[in-house]
Amino acid sequence: MFAEWAEKAPEGPLKRYYQAGMVTPQTALKDTPLLALDLETTGLDPNLDEIISLGLIPLSHKTIRCQGAQYWMAKPERSLHAESVTIHEITHSELAEAPRLHAILDEILIALSHQVIVVHCVAIERQFLLEASMKIYGFPLYFPVLDTMDIERQATYKPWWKRFGKQPSLRLDACRQRYKLPRYKAHHALTDALSSAELLQAQISYHMDPNADISNYWV
């Protein structure tokens, strides 16, 4: 797939991203390079809202490496809603000094190269990055994902006749508590990336086989 996209993509950073390739579906989970990612945005609509920050933190099935952590802020084209400011703890002045997304996306793509991405709730991250890529390069950005929310859904799945009372919450914080992970202040891209990285470690130690093919897990 990546080879095919590498041919079609326009010259530039995105082409180079696809040319770097991806691990094969037969790669064992324990040998897969993983990268936890989180975005903060001005809102929830990928068509209207924009990315304002992005955090990355590399990990293996056993260890999270703070040394490779990266973080960017991006100045949105439109102005920031007052309510999203309160959620993100990122101020207008911080954003005013930040570069535009198109100026940093090249760098982000280099970081994403050859990595399987770890996020909690794939829909948002994938959609926003896809939108951004379409707008900036005129071509879609695809990447394989380990979705900790999806992993948790499967781990806690019970057929309807065994369900009793409320379904367990799949929010990041609630999932973490299930594994006795500490509580963090949410809504900082790097903290949330760290958050889902830790959650994945816990999920791997409980529910996943490090020797199984990555294709069993990625979406």
Binding site: K62, T63, I64, R65, C66, Q67, A69, Y179, L181, L194, A197, E198, Q201, A202, S205, Y206
Partner: peptide
Amino acid sequence: MSKEIEIQYVR
């Protein structure tokens, strides 16, 4: 120092 920390989850 904090940037060089590695994190581990151990059951």
